[in-house]
Design a protein around this nucleic acid. Structure first.
Lengths: 334, 334
DNA sequence: GTGTAAAATGAATACGCATTCATTTTCTAT
DNA sequence: ATAGAAAATGAATGCGTATTCATTTTACAC
């Protein structure tokens, strides 16, 4: 059993044609007679020939590779994101190089590796993009699109939910249902999602003259939500609603509250963000904000692909809406 | 702002040396004088040069790329698996091409694409490997290691938990606590995990002369667990324990049972498999079997890397143990 | 200083393919 | 049948690198 990787030259010899013609067949070039095409395909089949993507990319300058950088793949929201991105890119013939950034910021070495592979674009989800990294990508003509994030400098395109507006609507909803004492469990304080969600929430409360808002830091994990809720409820027993930076925090918050012996929503209302699948599990049945995940991914892919084709495209910011999904974790207190 | 991708030739000209010498520096070859090395690095820095991985792989015949095929990334077990695999391979300088197989079996087109990229190895997790695909990989000298799976023909290495033994111990545990009426919610019936877990469970019951075992099909999702439990409990109200094919099924089963109005573990005991993080969430506190995830990944990586280096390595089967994690979903009925 | 071994260097080449350009073959209109 | 256009083909070339081989430079012992 041979393990040799056959080349287009080998196929050409078996088929009795030139290497050029073999190449034309596999590049989808139409200028090949049907007779030779069949001969070539037969020879290729016999040899088990497949084109070498690396040699090809050297000439075409297309690698059909996209980098996707995530930090918290264990957050079900991002598992779903990854799945959908894969489906979309796969359909377009692109391949995904998966990078799980262990640190908040994407690391230099990770950037370098992506550069060496000449990826055509990169999607940054819940990791931070340093301006140094951003510049490197730009310098090498690699398209960057931020997903569920944006940077102030608007140096790369970004697709995200209007977190500010969503938080305002959630706050309004809670206020109008008669809640009095508010708490917010945040994600990392340097992420745009956290900043905007807090900002919108705070603003509405201020407008309504409500001052008792407690803010507890979290990091978008169940454990941080659990701890935050314990902390909050011991510091202030009057809290009657908690807005959580994301769903996974909300689940932790709910478990903590129940562990203390309080009931949801009778004693405390809880609202999440994302609408991950678990939010609708009967144990939680969480009222939350649904991000239009599929549409966000679609738009991201669309932006990325179009910018790959266009060397001097301008960065675009796409903000989506989403909507409140009412389940059973909020109670009217009027 | 130039967007040109500079080559080793460009660096050579700036540094006043030959292309060979530049290549030597970036390939880590030591035969370069310190003086020229510095000049070259300075020139490379100035130009923003980076080696081209594709051109390099053409010569070295090493792509440093590994394919990882998963089917159900939304199962938290596999999110964790992906994260750990990435960490390990990243440390070794390998890159991960992520494939989310939408079908049970890895598709021909996916195999072809991986082949064209000359990946050095592929890890198949919860997808099925057709013998046609397996043969293709083998034919092209691509190492295959199955993770949490194996095939009867032993044509590729595999790392998995001893599901048969684990299921036997779980069955024994339940029997000795005095349970009388058993149910099993399975995964897809053609996976080795399902087959072995069912086999071990069944055998112990037979040994003990217990015949009332109900088997309900599932597919390793929450929804399937939920539905299965509804079905089981309406068909047979006496069931006092349910062994679930994996944790995510178990969570669905628990929610269904509680929705019906029964209590866990007072009315029904539930046991899962995997020990995903959610299993220890207070809402569930699931008794389950822990798979030694990190060790399994480590072993898989070790096997893969060693087989990459050794063209005629023999397939190895590595079976690990794991252990029961007792929480609060099983009650003694004696 | 000379002679020799070792280290450093550059020219040339190959990796596998797509593409350009020149040439040959086939097709169409008359 | 023949001119002319169109299609098909092959030879040659280059993508960016690592590596071999021959040559030059340096280091070292005497």
């Amino acid at each position: 059993m041979e393990k040799k990787n056959y080349t287009s030259q080998d196929v050409a010899e078996v088929a009795g044609v030139s290497q050029s013609t073999v190449s034309r067949v596999f590049a989808g070039n139409t200028n090949v007679s049907e007779k030779k095409r069949k001969k070539i395909l037969a020879a290729a089949e016999k040899l088990g020939y497949k084109p070498n993507a690396h040699a090809r990319s050297l000439i075409t300058r297309k690698t059909m590779m996209i980098g996707i950088v995530m930090r918290n793949i264990r957050n079900p929201f991002y598992s779903a994101v990854l799945e959908i991105f894969h489906n979309r890119f796969s359909a377009l013939g692109y391949h995904l190089i998966f990078i799980n950034s262990e640190n908040e910021e994407i690391q230099e070495s990770e950037v370098t590796q992506l550069l060496e592979y000449n990826i055509e674009g990169v999607i940054i989800t819940d990791a931070l993009l340093s301006s140094s990294a951003s510049e490197k990508f730009k310098r090498h003509g690699i398209v960057v699109v931020l997903f569920n994030r944006y940077t102030e400098q608007l140096e790369s395109s970004a697709v995200f939910c209007d977190n500010y507006l969503a938080a305002k609507q959630i706050a309004t909803y809670l206020v109008e249902l008669g809640h009095q004492s508010f708490a917010f469990v945040s994600g990392p304080s340097d992420t745009s999602t956290t900043i905007d969600r807090l900002k919108g929430f705070k603003e509405v409360l201020q407008e309504r003259g409500i001052t008792n808002l407690m803010i507890e830091p979290g990091n978008y994990t169940f454990e941080s939500g659990f701890k935050a809720a314990q902390e909050l409820m011991t510091r202030n027993k009057n809290i009657d609603c908690i807005f959580c930076g994301n769903d996974i925090i909300a689940l932790g918050v709910m478990d903590a509250i129940r562990t203390i012996g309080l009931r949801i929503p009778e004693d405390v209302s809880v609202v999440g963000f994302d609408n991950i699948r678990m939010a609708e599990w009967p144990s939680y049945s969480l009222t939350t904000w649904e991000q239009p995940l599929e549409e966000m991914v679609d738009k991201t892919v669309e932006l990325l692909v179009s910018e790959i084709g266009d060397t001097n495209a301008q960065p675009q910011i796409v903000m989506m809406k989403g909507h409140l999904v009412v389940r059973n974790t909020v109670k009217s207190r009027k």
